[in-house]
């Protein structure tokens, strides 16, 4: 599905990374490992066509990503290293907005199951602003489930999470991969998740 060939990125005349190669097919999990500042977020954003590479190319379904961008965006979703939930609104409001604005094909009972699995049912009427970091991170994963897209691109999804939450996220990863989804995620630590490819930056 996604093939990255000899990708290099330079910013302000500084090499961030060079000659990165990776391929991601359905059912695969790829991890990007590296210390802070090694270019993990930059690589993820380059794959999303937000940052221009200085050389190399990215292919989606056999075509250059840039020429097939509209189709690529239909299949991809992203979690940044900060919460995208609207902090002034309640968890329930956020779920309603995502469900409507992303035209989700997930039905209400599936959303309720996901809420229970992520242990968010007690926070539905709480404003996101007062939730802990771990809970907002789990809410981000709920957004991924609502968006229901095949490719998840995740920036440090496991950082600052306790063991129970990490287990929960691992289970969410396994469920997604079992449904022929694929995941690229970055981490500066060893997450203890089975991955098909490891890229060191």
């Amino acid at each position: 599905m996604i093939i990255v060939k000899d990708l290099s990125v330079e910013r302000l005349d500084k090499k961030i990374f060079e000659n990165i190669n990776l391929s991601l097919t359905s059912g695969n999990i790829t991890i990007l490992k590296g210390r802070n500042g090694s270019g993990k977020t930059t690589l993820l954003k380059t794959i999303l066509n937000i940052i221009e590479p200085s050389s190399g190319s990215i292919y989606w379904k056999g075509k250059l990503l840039k020429k097939n961008l509209y189709d690529f965006y239909k299949h991809v979703t992203y979690i940044a290293d900060k919460t995208s939930s609207l902090t002034k609104l309640t968890v329930k409001d956020n779920i309603n907005i995502w469900n409507k604005i992303f035209l989700s094909n997930i039905n209400n009972s599936q959303i309720e199951t996901a809420i229970k699995n992520l242990k968010l049912e007690n926070y539905l009427n709480h404003k996101v602003g007062i939730l802990s970091f771990g809970e907002t991170k789990k809410l981000e994963f709920l957004r991924l489930i609502i968006e229901n897209k095949k490719i998840w691109i995740l920036d440090e999804p496991l950082s600052s999470l306790d063991e129970d939450s990490v287990e929960l996220i691992k289970q969410t990863f396994e469920d997604h991969v079992a449904k022929e989804g694929s995941i690229i995620f970055s981490s500066h630590q060893n997450p203890g998740i089975y991955v098909t490819e490891e890229i060191n930056l």
Binding site: L48, I50, Y70, Y73, K74, V76, T77, Y78, A80, K82, T83, S84, S85, L86, T87, I101, F102, E147
Partner: peptide, 13 residues
């Protein structure tokens, strides 16, 4: 912009 919603909206068409 700060919470990444601009990017997420862009990825959603």
């Amino acid at each position: 912009f700060e919470n990444g919603n601009l990017l997420i909206m862009h990825l959603n068409g």
